[in-house]
């Protein structure tokens, strides 16, 4: 496989993993009755989630631009 393909897939993978993992870092959706439920379990988890989205889509740019 070409290096650019690997990087692209890696970026997608990292993005998706960030999204999935950070989802579990967020405040739990089923919890409403305690103070902790109002905080993400890891600080800035939503930002990590969004970062995942950005990385995943950036892969397209990388893939298009990357020189083989």
């Amino acid at each position: 496989m070409k290096r650019s393909t690997i990087v692209t897939w890696t970026m997608i993978a990292v993005g998706v993993v960030l999204m999935v993992v950070s989802y579990f870092f967020l405040a739990t959706p089923w919890c409403n009755t305690a103070v902790e439920c109002s905080n993400p379990r890891v600080p800035f988890a939503p930002a990590i989630f969004v970062l995942g989205v950005l990385i995943a889509f950036s892969s397209a740019v990388y893939y298009a631009v990357a020189k083989d």
């Binding site: 405040a27 409403n32 009755t33 103070v35 439920c37 109002s38």
Partner: peptide, 19 residues
């Protein structure tokens, strides 16, 4: 409310329920 709609929809957890 023990099942508070306002707590559910708050996008930042500013509205919260205590024990």
């Amino acid at each position: 409310c023990n099942n508070a709609p306002c707590v559910k929809v708050c996008p930042t957890g500013a509205r919260y329920k205590r024990e």
